[in-house]
């Protein structure tokens, strides 16, 4: 068992998969440049030295090319891991992800497979509106894509390895404040959780949620950074006699409704915390499904806590206000039990 950061766990997953399978390669901006950063958040640091620049392929600043080349390579026998510096830049490559990657298998009547991974950092971190978004919800909406959100080092490694071996396009969203990137790429306000990662090989299947904390009064579903805020809130609420069950779905597509519903049948209260804007986010889908499938188990209306429906502002005081905080989660939880 080794202890490592999420960036290190992701790097180890990539390294193992590249050793295991010659078809696996990485492409992206600044991922292998000598004297560079190893991608925006150091995940690929050192891999070019180990695997060479052909398999750790630096690209021009061309997001359409990155995604399109990944699609093309994937449908013709390779297993690319593409990298985008900030999740916000996924919008530059939407045609390739949504029209090409997601639909190729279907349009071909199931004959073409697209085994590609698209990694991207998300989350607000005082960079202003265009380097801050959490766009997971855009992609959960698209049939044909899988959406993965690892919040621990253990999950990061196991889920990324599963993503590489999946025969479908998988988007892996990683949080900037969870990476544990070091040196010049470290983040001031980061949490940087370190976690234990087994030495032996393991995979984490998609669609299996993790119960991060058991509780009996409220079921709280959260991903990425919000898992940690939810856990902090749960700690505070425990002092007030409230017991919160925190569930990290780990993958949004496929989504483990069974685990969440089982919890709701126990707690009778459901809260969803997401860092994305509230309107039509993935949390709205979970809430809608809950209203269809388990409404009679609920003792109170479902609460969704998300970023307010504004772009992410720069000023820390504003950013902290817009993105769900521990304080906001605590207050909403109190209201929920009073309801």
């Amino acid at each position: 068992m080794a202890t490592m950061t999420i960036a290190e766990a992701l790097r180890q997953a990539i390294r193992e998969e590249m050793h295991r399978d010659a078809r696996v390669f990485c492409l992206g901006e600044d991922i292998g440049v000598e004297g560079g950063f190893g991608g925006a958040f150091t995940v690929t640091l050192g891999l070019a030295e180990e695997f060479g620049h052909e398999r750790i392929l630096d690209t021009p600043v061309s997001e359409i090319l990155i995604a399109g080349a990944a699609v093309g390579a994937a449908i013709s026998g390779m297993r690319p891991i593409a990298d985008v510096q900030y999740g916000d830049f996924l919008f530059c490559m939407m045609d390739q992800l949504v029209n090409q990657a997601a639909k190729m298998t279907y349009m071909s009547g199931g004959t073409v497979k697209v085994p590609m991974v698209m990694r991207s950092p998300v989350g607000a971190s005082t960079r202003g509106a265009q380097h801050a978004q959490s766009p997971e919800g855009f992609f959960t909406h698209v049939p044909g894509l899988k959406v993965v959100c690892p919040s621990t080092a253990y999950d990061a490694k196991g889920l990324l390895k599963s993503a590489v071996r999946d025969d479908n396009p998988v988007l892996v969203f990683e949080h900037k404040l969870l990476y544990g990137s070091k040196g010049a790429r470290s983040e001031k306000t980061a949490l940087n959780p370190v976690g234990e990662v087994p030495d032996e090989e393991y995979l984490i299947p998609f669609g299996k949620a993790a119960v991060r904390r058991e509780g009996k009064d409220i079921t709280l579903v959260a991903t990425l950074l919000m898992v940690y805020r939810a856990l902090q809130a749960a700690e505070i609420l425990e002092g007030e006699g409230l017991s919160i069950e925190v569930i990290d779905p780990r993958t949004l597509v496929p989504f483990d409704y069974d685990t969440v519903w089982e919890s709701v049948r126990k707690t009778s209260r459901l809260m969803i915390v997401e860092e994305d804007n509230r309107r039509c986010g993935w949390g709205a889908e979970i809430a809608a499904r809950a209203s269809e499938e388990i409404i009679y188990y609920l003792d109170a209306p479902i609460r969704r806590i998300a970023a307010y429906d504004v772009p992410i502002p720069f000023a820390p005081v504003m950013e902290n206000y817009v993105v769900p905080s521990v304080k906001r989660i605590v207050e909403e939880a109190r209201k929920l039990v009073e309801a």
């Binding site: 398999r55 399109g68 093309g72 390579a73 994937a74 390779m78 090409q100």
Partner: peptide, 18 residues
């Protein structure tokens, strides 16, 4: 999608070479 296949072809070319 007009132009959408051009980057895909580049990826196939990359794969042929790799």
């Amino acid at each position: 999608i007009v132009g959408g296949g051009i980057p895909v072809a580049v990826g196939i070319g990359l794969s042929c070479k790799m």
